[in-house]
Design a binder for these strands. Sequence first.
DNA 1: TTTTTTTTGGATCATATGTTCCATGTCGCA
DNA 2: TGCGACATGGAACATATGATCCAAAAAAAA
Lengths: 303, 303
Amino acid sequence: MATRDFPKSEERPAAMGVIDQLRDRFASLSPSLQQVARYVLDHPNEVVTQSMRTVGQHAQVPPTTLVRFAQTCGFEGWNPFKQALTADMGLASEAGNQYGERARSLLGRAQDQQLTAEMFAMQRSNLDVTEQHSAARLLTAAQLLETADQVHVMGMRACFPVAFSLVYVYRLFRRSVHLLEGMGGVREMQLRAIDAGDALVAISFAPYSQETVHAVELARARGCKVLALTDSLASPLSLAADETLLFAVNSPSFFPSVTAAQALSESLLEVLVSRAGPQAVARIDAAEGELHDSGVYVQPVRK
Amino acid sequence: MATRDFPKSEERPAAMGVIDQLRDRFASLSPSLQQVARYVLDHPNEVVTQSMRTVGQHAQVPPTTLVRFAQTCGFEGWNPFKQALTADMGLASEAGNQYGERARSLLGRAQDQQLTAEMFAMQRSNLDVTEQHSAARLLTAAQLLETADQVHVMGMRACFPVAFSLVYVYRLFRRSVHLLEGMGGVREMQLRAIDAGDALVAISFAPYSQETVHAVELARARGCKVLALTDSLASPLSLAADETLLFAVNSPSFFPSVTAAQALSESLLEVLVSRAGPQAVARIDAAEGELHDSGVYVQPVRK
DNA sequence: TTTTTTTTGGATCATATGTTCCATGTCGCA
DNA sequence: TGCGACATGGAACATATGATCCAAAAAAAA
């Protein structure tokens, strides 16, 4: 057994928490034990709260493995490990009576994190506004794209990420989707591909990028439908578009937040997927390896 | 018995937490039950963590009284009460994951309206989870970047948009920020720029992209600090990183949502901005024209 | 290939846990 | 004082829990 390969709990440097210990040892654990470690790292509070069997079920591992895991980490058994983890999380019994004070000190410290809280609050608010404005129109927007021969997507600067990820996912279940990224200054060449029967998804917010507005005008002139993802019905994009989806970019900082735009784009994708039918789903399954961040799953390193 | 004096759990106002409920009821409890209540209020984490008998011993009360206490408060028994308290303390096993499972089963359903609502709800949930996991660590993450000579940012495929917009905004108030985009297959060349004293921001989620993992390993080998933006403390990125910020990618559809990752990146930027000091703000003002979607403001068209 | 070693999970067991039942204790009132 | 209503805690029980053992499976070595 590998237990003796690891120093016992009292020999380990006390400064290091259980969680950090885990991260260090992670690589040298067996696959199942890594699975447990992953679950412990991802759901420490459940581990501390729930029973061994419950945790095992959620981590898809028999209770036996949990015991082995704890022992491999240098503890007598599961309960000692649980207690150590509890202590590491600042939930130890001793600290218990200070919980009220601790919480209060967290409140006092909250000023440091007020900015962050404000940011997240604003993003939530943007999400709300965006959903309210656009949820009802997602269906017709999706239909516009579905009836198009080719779909071109364009977003500049801050909107480029949204355009990119829209194309990245859309491509997984539809071939005729293209990103007008203009690499090497050849956007004019790409714009020539726009034709009647196509659709252009134009993404921009105030102040609207010249290039995107120009592309919309060109598309209209050629009889190409336009779906605008923008911040106002009065934006030049929306005024020239056949369909408009609105998003909010409010931010407590000096730069606008594109989080809601990203969310809107993903929602549009979801509608497209759900309407794409079985054959698209089949293709999705075939491309499963490409779905996430990479097509190549990288196994955690083992010594 | 006093039980019927108190409304059953389903009648209670859901908005009120268990702890607040307790404070209200306190006066109307019998002495022993008050003793329990006091202990619960003073040591909620022990109550959540330890067993009934242990708690009883510490509260100097037999287990029987604990059951009576829970029932008097309108719960079926001790465990339901414990769970409610757990949830109230924000230690409930995260809804995100179970939610993800549940939502995935909705794929076949073609009720677009509902799917859209589901999508937004999940993005909100991702935002919550992300904030809870990472808000506290944003500060140290920001410090890591500030002390670096050069900052390199890398995100592949679905994570590329996040990397791009991080660099796009960061560049507005700091020159030494670089995107490792590998255009034309020259990433190896770009990686050579990574050096000791620098920092690498690596963005990826499961299954982790080979290229990003490789970049992290290379950075470590060269003495370059690593900040990981990823989905798990057990991810290969986090395991090799000096600092980790977590985000959730749950989605009701087949593709993961990077909305929360985008939000996290923007929050990190905001912390960086707020700490950058006056001279950076001055530069921000000078570059104001570049801040938004375009440097060129396009007046909305007037008919 | 075969053999050896390691890893994994089901069956099992002693114990701890949450609960119920009932006897005892306590308080208020006649 | 005695009586009834309520509060309290001990004993007992069915069950869940954490741990051990052992066989099957998988991986590594020969």
